[in-house]
């Protein structure tokens, strides 16, 4: 493992452990308002200042990090599970099932992903509780992200089915279930892990984009998307502490990207 990857894993672990129990060390709850100190500059009391509603930025950033770091992998798990199910079924069943599933995947891939995501999110209720908005946002990411990985899984299963060891397993009298459990599943695991590792940073970025366009997690619950929305005011250069969430987001996504090749065995494009 290279130094870069070790460093990236270290960064992710530090950030994740800081975000796992923010109530233990952050100055305040994410929704607590200090009305006497609205839009305050960084100080000993508020290390990153407060927003226009007087909420502590550091607390909101840490709570928001927890939301993104917990739910992006959950959404990635969902999309990889759906991809395994759909891609695997299409490859194993063949015929009409294959045509139907692959046509559905093509349909999803024929639209720009962000457009599909925005449209689907806008069609769902926007006036919902913050908890529901979180569930809807990440559920949508998980549900809409299946098509790309499904095509990869489909191709992999097809390739495996015609490989010598599977043919030998069939010739030895193993049933379809045993072949699936003993031979296909272990060989699919690295591919699924690769898809999972690609999906996590992608979903973190997608949630941030949705949040910045006003379609992500609802206030007062913080997420990277609605925290970054503060930059809309255009004060980033006069108030550089507003850029701390940008640095954290870039650090997390870059760390995921740096960790990826080690996990998946892919070629290092960095």
């Amino acid at each position: 493992m290279t130094l870069l990857r070790r460093g990236a894993i270290g960064v992710l672990m530090v950030i994740a452990s800081a975000a796992v129990a923010p109530e233990l060390w952050t100055p305040a709850h994410y929704a607590t308002q200090f009305r006497e100190a609205a839009d305050a500059e960084p100080s000993g009391r508020f290390p990153l200042g407060t927003d226009r509603l007087g909420r502590d930025r550091l607390s909101r950033l840490v709570y928001g990090t927890r939301v993104s770091l917990l739910l992006a992998p959950a959404a990635a798990l969902l999309s990889c599970g759906a991809a395994a199910l759909m891609g695997g079924s299409a490859a194993v069943a063949g015929g009409l099932t294959e045509t139907g599933i692959m046509a559905l995947a093509d349909l999803c891939l024929s639209l720009p992903w962000l457009f599909l995501l925005l449209t689907m999110r806008a069609l769902l209720p926007l006036n919902v509780s913050p908890q529901t908005s979180i569930a809807l946002t990440f559920l949508l990411l998980g549900v809409l992200g299946w098509a790309g990985p499904a095509r990869v899984i489909f191709a992999t299963v097809r390739k495996l089915q015609s490989s010598d060891f599977i043919l030998q397993a069939h010739a030895a009298g193993l049933g379809p279930r045993q072949v699936f459990l003993r031979h296909l599943t272990p060989n699919l695991a690295p591919v699924l892990l690769a898809q999972f590792c690609v999906a996590v940073p992608l979903y973190v970025l997608a949630e941030a984009t949705l949040g910045m366009l006003g379609l992500g997690v609802a206030e007062p619950l913080p997420s990277w998307g609605n925290i970054l929305r503060e930059l809309e005011s255009g004060n980033a250069l006069s108030q550089p502490w507003l850029l701390v969430p940008v640095v954290l987001l870039a650090l997390v996504v870059a760390s995921f990207q740096a960790v990826m090749p080690a996990q998946t065995g892919e070629k290092d494009y960095a």
């Binding site: 941030a208 910045m212 987001l249």
Partner: peptide, 8 residues
């Protein structure tokens, strides 16, 4: 640049 969303 790949680590930042386009909107940002």
């Amino acid at each position: 640049l790949l680590s930042l969303p386009t909107a940002l």
